[in-house]
Each structure stands twice: as C-alpha cells, then as structure tokens.
C-alpha cells in the first residue's frame, strides 16, 4: 500500500521535496528498512539519509524510533532532531 512520505528541515532540502508517495514491498517492515529501501533506489535519498543517527521519525504523526514497524502506515515523516521553543 502506498505511503505518503513527508520530509522536514534539512532532510526536506536534501531529498529535494517535502512530500512524495512511495510503494515499498511488504518485506519493508520498519522505518529503518524504509529508509534503506529509499536510499537504495536513489542517490539523492541515500545522501539525504546518510547521517542515520541524526534522523528522527513519525508514523501517522506519532513520534517513533527508527526500529518502529510501519505496517498499515499511511504517513511516515523523516526529519532532524526538533529545535522549537
């Protein structure tokens, strides 16, 4: 099932878009696996996601760790550590 990817801050700038629809195979089961699959398919994504330790994620708008499952997810967001306030 297609997943709506959202990117924010420098992740958005490095990917080159703030939003895209992707359709990973069923074997892609976690956020980390999704990042690997996106990176394998495009050098731009691979460069954007190179610093894995600086990436944070949300699945359907809930903050999760990168090992969180994505089964049934409609929206996955990737972004740097937050800096509000």
């Amino acid at each position: 099932m297609a997943i709506r990817m959202l990117y924010f801050a420098w992740v958005r700038e490095r990917v080159g878009t703030g939003e895209e629809l992707v359709d990973p195979p069923a074997s892609v089961a976690t956020v980390a696996a999704l990042i690997d699959w996106l990176a394998a398919g495009s050098p731009t994504h691979a460069a954007a996601f190179a610093e894995r330790g600086r990436l944070r994620a949300a699945v359907d708008q809930v903050f999760v760790s990168l090992d969180a499952p994505i089964e049934g997810a409609r929206e996955v967001a990737l972004f740097p550590p937050v800096t509000g306030g």
Binding site: A9, F63, V82, T83, G84
Partner: peptide
Amino acid sequence: LKTDAPFWKRETRSGTAAWV
C-alpha cells in the same frame, strides 16, 4: 515543548541560512 514538538529553526546570518 523544546524536545517533543516538531519545530525546526533556520537562522540567517550575513545572508547565509543554516539549520539550528
């Protein structure tokens, strides 16, 4: 709020922007 809410700051100094 500083650690749990998704906001990102980008500052511009001398015409050059950088993410905080």
